[in-house]
Design a protein around this nucleic acid. Sequence first.
DNA 1: CCGTAAAAGTTGAATAGTTAATTAAATTGG
DNA 2: CCAATTTAATTAACTATTCAACTTTTACGG
Lengths: 164, 164
Amino acid sequence: MTPETTEPNDSDTAWLTDQEQRAWRTHLDVSRLLMHQLERDLQPFGLTNNDYEILVNLSEAEDHRLRMSDLAAGTLQSKSRLSHQITRMENAGLVRRESCESDRRGLYAVLTDEGWETMRRVAPHHVASVRRHFIDLFAAEDLEALRVSLAPVAEHLRTQRGGL
Amino acid sequence: MTPETTEPNDSDTAWLTDQEQRAWRTHLDVSRLLMHQLERDLQPFGLTNNDYEILVNLSEAEDHRLRMSDLAAGTLQSKSRLSHQITRMENAGLVRRESCESDRRGLYAVLTDEGWETMRRVAPHHVASVRRHFIDLFAAEDLEALRVSLAPVAEHLRTQRGGL
DNA sequence: CCGTAAAAGTTGAATAGTTAATTAAATTGG
DNA sequence: CCAATTTAATTAACTATTCAACTTTTACGG
């Protein structure tokens, strides 16, 4: 038993300095407040953030369709969650499921016309929202600096994660 | 009616440039992956991120107690959500509710001994986790740059939000 | 004072998300 | 070729979050 270690804690991990704390807190606050705000801005269109991200992924995909697994990976969700999410969006008429020829276990999530139309209608407002509450609040060079220093973190985290 | 605007969209909001897109995506990915990772690292201790943040707030508070409203504001949650959250933590023995003399509508959330003990036990591991997956992945100057460019965003968002 | 409004907090029902188990199809290695 | 695994996806049961309605107490305006 080590008796009374001098200050921070009993492992070899240093406590956060004041600067680190503030940076960390700020990141945390921005994350949460931003998501809340974007969600609020989407509400008038009857979409959640999650709905929107599915729409984006499908819109950008070949033929407006993606395998469930790929869509789950693309949106960083578990398969289960995606399955529920797609069921809801199917009920809302935004997407439909289609079975896959080449692998009969598989399913595609496919954008419906209504889904595509919704996307086209909502996207400009969402982009405006992202600009207003995030992008336009940085100097261009700061935004690039942000991306550069965040990219390795994203990389690191992607390697860490087992199954969402 | 403006007929066929040339490219991006029909309002005066510009689409995101490639750089902006990448910065935005990266921020988004880091936010989500990081929260997942921290949550996973807390799991062995039987705590969620939310639990932990409540504990932090109460630990740092005068007398280990805070009014429900203040705690809700401090953790950026709705009152309803906090109320449920505190009920769960109360059942887990980490906090207790105490009524308030000066304002008989009000309640305090108070850290129990067990809550405090849990906090002291878990905090080093959580800090290590935050270091490993975030703080230590930046050069010190980059972290400060991050904070400086994010701070106004946080500020902006705080002014925007009505009632969570 | 008194009535009306605002604030603090909770509650219940509805929606969303997680976890673990399950089904069905494909892969793989003897 | 076929048993054992692995992969794709869903489902059921549980937990967490939101949303709207409600209770109690305080604050405000005349």
